[in-house]
Amino acid sequence: MKAPAFTFERALTLNDAFDLFEAGDGEALYLAGGHSVVPSLALRLQAPETLIDIAEIPELSGIREEREMLRIGAMTRHAEILADPLVATHAPLLAMAAPHVAHVAIRNRGTIGGNLCHADPASEFPAVMLALEAEMEIASPEGHRRVPARDFFVDLYETACAPGEILVALHVPVVGRATRCAFDEIARRQGDYAMVGCAVQITLKDGRITDPRVAFLSVGPTPRRVPACEQVLNDTPLSADTISRAQHALAAELEPMDDPNVPPAMRLHLARVLLGRLLRQLENDHV
């Protein structure tokens, strides 16, 4: 299929974008990297009268450290996340997840802001944002606001961004020296949507775990943190017994979506396997 006819506009400032969206009278759509929007146009799942390119807005670009936080512009490409030394140093979990995002061609063009606003529950970056306890900076004609990642992902393909609002940047707390993290997913082939994925970040203090954060992707309509599992891990040594108890805690927290290709019981089993694999990796790294 081919996309329906539309008018193409390029915004050079946030105010330009807001004015163009308002002029579209509810029939306008923002365009970032295009890897979500363009296929939806081709399939005629969306048919905007106006497509507004926001790629050239300076405020949406750049990665920099600001007051113990890492600011990542929403137009940052996936490939930049993978290669940037600030991300590797201050948000290594994000850098670990980046190679799992689709394929090289998509990572070279796709943007982290577009990825997060698409809110695909099988995508890697939304789960990582939960584990990092990031804040999303959202702009509208009325000003800027910050929304914690836990409140940003509302439902399947739905976020806290209201129509016409723009995700400007992500604000990620920088990690300390004692922070350890790991990411992995189980997929049939590299680049396929994951059957399950997991992001883990912990702090080790005097051989015990503090501030454990575990987030899963592809287990429901939104990415999921698992508080009961995190409670099992908190203030305990990273040992085989701790790992086993954390795995068993998942049964009470995860209710995987029904899928004819991956039944819920299998997805839960894979989540346990993956969590154990990542925690053992962190245990071995600590030795």
Rank of each mutant, 00 (worst) to 15 (best):
residue 143 G to H: 01
residue 142 E to V: 15
residue 127 A to I: 01
residue 78 H to I: 06
residue 74 A to T: 13
residue 112 I to V: 14
residue 135 E to C: 12
residue 126 P to G: 09
residue 145 R to C: 02
residue 156 L to N: 13
residue 92 P to H: 02
residue 105 A to H: 11
residue 97 A to Y: 09
residue 62 G to Y: 10
residue 99 P to L: 05
residue 147 V to I: 15
residue 73 G to C: 08
residue 131 A to C: 15
residue 80 E to M: 11
residue 55 A to M: 15
residue 126 P to Q: 09
residue 57 I to M: 07
residue 78 H to P: 05
residue 125 F to V: 07
residue 111 T to K: 01
residue 86 L to T: 01
residue 146 R to I: 05
residue 120 D to C: 13
residue 56 E to W: 14
residue 64 R to D: 07
residue 116 L to M: 13
residue 147 V to G: 05
residue 156 L to A: 12
residue 114 G to K: 02
residue 124 E to W: 06
residue 59 E to F: 08
residue 138 I to C: 04
residue 92 P to N: 03
residue 91 A to N: 02
residue 65 E to F: 00
residue 146 R to C: 14
residue 86 L to W: 10
residue 79 A to L: 11
residue 100 H to G: 06
residue 102 A to Y: 00
residue 131 A to F: 04
residue 139 A to D: 05
residue 162 A to P: 08
residue 143 G to M: 03
residue 139 A to S: 11
residue 66 E to F: 06
residue 60 L to R: 13
residue 66 E to G: 01
residue 147 V to F: 00
residue 86 L to P: 03
residue 163 P to M: 12
residue 53 D to G: 07
residue 70 L to V: 00
residue 119 A to C: 14
residue 118 H to T: 14
residue 65 E to I: 11
residue 77 R to D: 09
residue 108 N to P: 11
residue 125 F to G: 00
residue 108 N to Y: 14
residue 88 A to V: 14
residue 133 E to Y: 02
residue 65 E to H: 10
residue 96 M to G: 12
residue 147 V to W: 00
residue 151 D to L: 11
residue 98 A to G: 04
residue 145 R to Q: 06
residue 111 T to S: 13
residue 100 H to S: 12
residue 151 D to Y: 12
residue 140 S to A: 15
residue 122 A to D: 11
residue 74 A to N: 13
residue 100 H to C: 04
residue 82 L to Y: 02
residue 160 A to F: 09
residue 110 G to H: 08
residue 101 V to T: 00
residue 98 A to F: 07
residue 100 H to M: 12
residue 63 I to Y: 06
residue 57 I to F: 09
residue 105 A to K: 12
residue 77 R to F: 01
residue 130 L to N: 03
residue 89 T to S: 15
residue 120 D to M: 06
residue 111 T to L: 05
residue 98 A to D: 02
residue 130 L to T: 00
residue 116 L to G: 07
residue 131 A to K: 00
residue 79 A to F: 05
residue 57 I to P: 07
residue 74 A to V: 10
residue 157 Y to C: 06
residue 52 I to H: 01
residue 57 I to T: 04
residue 73 G to M: 01
residue 150 R to Q: 12
residue 66 E to I: 14
residue 119 A to M: 09
residue 58 P to S: 07
residue 155 D to Q: 10
residue 77 R to H: 14
residue 67 R to Y: 09
residue 126 P to M: 09
residue 109 R to P: 03
residue 59 E to P: 09
residue 159 T to A: 00
residue 113 G to F: 02
